[in-house]
Write a protein that binds this DNA or RNA. Structure first.
Length: 191
DNA sequence: ACCGTGATGTTCT
DNA sequence: GAACATCACGGTG
């Protein structure tokens, strides 16, 4: 079952935790690809020095301020796309970074897009999974309640919370346990 | 297996 | 002009 709008309208930490075990799907002209979400991070707007929305609304972050259930993508280090799910209601700028997937559908297409054969190298990082699912900058603002990209109910995994990855610049916020993982899953970007 | 480093293009100051 | 929610590759052990 495809997740309804209401799923995304809750606070970012709840959405980040509950996305673990759900299935992220893209259905593009090239084919359908999907994977189970096994790693997420919550970014919590005004109270979170690590969040892009911490310093207010800009051209890049305006989608954060809309209603939940839309896609926020951005280019990082000039090479990689990161895929995020906007959470909470309008004017509460929270989002969830999808950091790793366990590949399910369209594995051959993912291998082609990634130019890798090892299953573990397809979706074990935010840039990797974006490439594997064919997610580009043009997905900025896409509706997760549409047909091109969406999330479905799938499995239930035991969940662990850890510090977020690569947010050392954020001071105290770097210590918050706002990364959620499917405990022990072998497709994580890191343990 | 682990570690160090360079690539590369937006965004924001 | 610096910083950046990363990745791939080459070195070493």
């Amino acid at each position: 079952m495809k997740l309804p709008r209401e799923f995304y309208l809750r606070d970012g930490l709840t959405v980040a935790r509950e996305l673990i075990g759900k299935k992220l799907v893209t259905n593009l002209p090239e084919g359908l690809t999907s994977g189970l979400i096994v790693e997420t991070e919550a970014y919590m707007g005004a109270i979170d020095a690590a969040a892009h929305s911490y310093r207010g609304k800009t051209e890049r972050t305006k989608i954060f301020y809309g209603a939940g259930g839309f896609v926020y993508v951005y280019l990082i280090y000039g090479r990689n796309i990161c895929t995020n799910v906007v959470a909470n209601v309008e004017d509460v700028p929270e989002a969830v970074l999808i950091r790793a997937l366990q590949p399910v559908d369209g594995v051959e297409l993912m291998k082609r897009r990634r130019n890798k054969n090892n299953l573990r190298e397809l979706c074990s990082g935010p840039g990797k999974l974006s490439q594997a699912l064919g997610i580009t900058k043009s997905f900025y603002g896409s509706d997760l309640c549409g047909e091109e990209i969406f999330i479905e109910t799938a499995e239930t995994f035991p969940i662990a919370a850890t510090k977020r990855i690569n947010v050392d610049y954020a001071g105290e916020a770097a210590n918050y346990l706002w990364r959620f993982v499917a405990a022990g899953n072998k497709f994580l970007s890191a343990n």
